[in-house]
Lab assay of single mutants.
Amino acid sequence: KELVLVLYDYQEKSPRELTVKKGDILTLLNSTNKDWWKIEVNGRQGFVPAAYLKKL
């Protein structure tokens, strides 16, 4: 499993997105899109802007 660090808080703006908090370490599911990465948070899957995340 690949992990990502959340660099900035992000509030979901659609049902396909997820809310994340700065400092969270989460599972990366897909990073093929350069702008939006798919991650998992508490069993939910969704997208967060790639600029808000850093691969560990």
Results as ranks from 00 to 15, higher is better:
E40C: 11
Y10A: 01
Y10D: 00
L53A: 01
L53W: 01
I39L: 15
W37D: 01
K55F: 07
K55Y: 10
V20K: 00
G46V: 06
P49K: 04
E12S: 15
N33A: 08
T27Y: 10
L3D: 04
N42P: 09
K38P: 01
L53H: 00
V48R: 00
N30Q: 10
S14I: 05
D24A: 10
E2F: 10
K13V: 08
L53S: 00
L28S: 02
Q11W: 15
W36N: 03
V41W: 11
K54D: 08
S31C: 10
N30R: 07
Y10P: 01
D35L: 13
K1W: 12
D9N: 10
G46C: 05
T27L: 14
N30I: 07
L28F: 04
K21P: 01
L53F: 04
R44N: 14
V4D: 00
L7A: 03
G43L: 06
K21T: 12
K1I: 14
L5F: 08
L18F: 08
K1P: 15
T32V: 11
G23W: 05
W36V: 04
Q45Y: 09
W37Q: 01
R44H: 12
G46E: 03
V4Y: 05
Y8L: 11
K13D: 07
V48G: 01
T32K: 15
K21V: 12
L29F: 04
K54V: 14
T32D: 15
K54G: 06
W37S: 02
E17L: 05
W36T: 03
L26Y: 14
R16K: 13
A50D: 02
V6P: 00
W36R: 04
I25K: 05
Y10I: 01
L28Y: 02
D35C: 09
E12R: 12
I25Y: 05
A51W: 10
R44M: 11
L7I: 09
N42E: 11
V6S: 02
K38G: 05
K1R: 11
P15Q: 10
N33T: 07
G23A: 03
R16W: 15
L26V: 15
T27A: 09
K38T: 09
Y8P: 00
A50H: 03
Y10Q: 01
I25F: 06
S14G: 14
Y10S: 01
S31K: 07
Q45M: 12
N33K: 07
V41P: 00
W36C: 07
K54W: 10
R16A: 11
L5K: 06
D35P: 02
L53R: 00
W36E: 06
Q45G: 09
L29E: 03
D35R: 11
Q11I: 10
I39F: 02
P15R: 10
Y10R: 03
D35H: 12
L56T: 06
Q11D: 15
K1L: 14
V48F: 02
K54N: 07
F47H: 06
L29D: 02
I25Q: 04
K38S: 09
G43D: 09
A50E: 04
N33C: 09
L26E: 08
E40L: 07
V6N: 00
K54T: 13
E17R: 07
A51H: 12
W37A: 02
Y52S: 10
D9S: 08
P15Y: 09
K34G: 11
K13G: 08
K22C: 07
R44C: 07
L3F: 14
L28R: 01
L26M: 06
V20Q: 00
V20D: 00
R16M: 15
G43A: 07
L3N: 06
T19P: 04
I39K: 00
N33Q: 10
G43W: 04
A51G: 13
R44S: 07
I39P: 00
K21E: 07
L3P: 03
Q11K: 13
E40A: 09
D9H: 05
N42D: 15
L29G: 02
K1M: 14
T32M: 12
Y10C: 01
E2C: 12
V6H: 00
R44V: 10
E40H: 05
Y8V: 14
Y8N: 10
G23Y: 04
N30F: 07
K1S: 11
V20T: 02
Y52K: 06
Q11G: 08
N30A: 12
E40N: 04
K55E: 07
I39M: 05
P49S: 02
P49D: 03
T19K: 07
F47R: 03
E40M: 08
V4Q: 00
E17P: 08
D24F: 06
Y10K: 01
L7Q: 04
K13T: 14
V41Y: 14
K21L: 09
V20S: 01
Q45R: 10
I25D: 00
G46D: 02
S14M: 08
V6C: 06
L26A: 15
A51Y: 11
I25L: 08
N42A: 11
T27Q: 14
A50T: 07
T32L: 10
Y52D: 03
T27K: 10
E40V: 08
V48Q: 00
K54F: 10
D35E: 13
S14E: 09
L28T: 01
L28I: 06
D24I: 03
W36Y: 11
D9K: 02
L26C: 12
A51S: 13
I25E: 03
L18V: 15
L53C: 06
Y8T: 09
N33E: 10
L3V: 09
P49G: 02
Y52T: 09
L5Q: 07
G46Y: 06
L5C: 07
E2W: 11
I39V: 14
Y8H: 15
L28A: 03
K55G: 04
V48N: 00
L7M: 11
W37L: 02
K13F: 06
R16S: 13
P15S: 12
I39R: 00
N33W: 06
N42C: 10
Y52G: 10
L53K: 00
Q11L: 12
K22S: 09
L18D: 01
Y8W: 13
Q11H: 14
G43T: 05
Q45W: 11
L29Q: 04
A51M: 12
W36K: 03
E2D: 12
L56M: 13
A51T: 11
S14A: 10
T32F: 10
K34F: 08
K54Y: 10
D35M: 12
S14F: 08
L3W: 14
P15V: 11
K55P: 11
V6D: 00
L56W: 08
G23V: 00
Y10T: 01
R16V: 13
V41D: 15
L29V: 14
W36G: 03
K38R: 12
N42T: 07
W37Y: 06
K38I: 14
V4P: 00
L7E: 04
D35K: 11
P15H: 13
R16I: 13
G23N: 06
L29C: 07
G43K: 06
N33I: 05
E12I: 10
Q11V: 13
L28H: 01
G43P: 02
Q45H: 11
K22A: 14
K55R: 13
S31H: 12
G23I: 00
L28M: 04
I39W: 00
T19Q: 05
Y10G: 01
R16P: 09
P49Q: 02
E12W: 07
G23P: 01
G46P: 01
E12C: 11
Q11P: 05
N42L: 11
E40I: 06
D24S: 10
A50C: 06
E17W: 05
L18W: 03
R44D: 07
T19D: 04
Y52A: 14
V4R: 00
N33Y: 08
G43N: 10
V4S: 01
Y52M: 11
K21H: 15
L56Y: 09
K54P: 00
N33S: 12
F47P: 00
F47W: 15
N30C: 10
K38V: 15
K22P: 03
W37R: 01
D24P: 00
L56I: 13
S31W: 10
L18I: 12
P49C: 03
R16C: 15
R44E: 12
K34V: 09
V4T: 02
K22W: 04
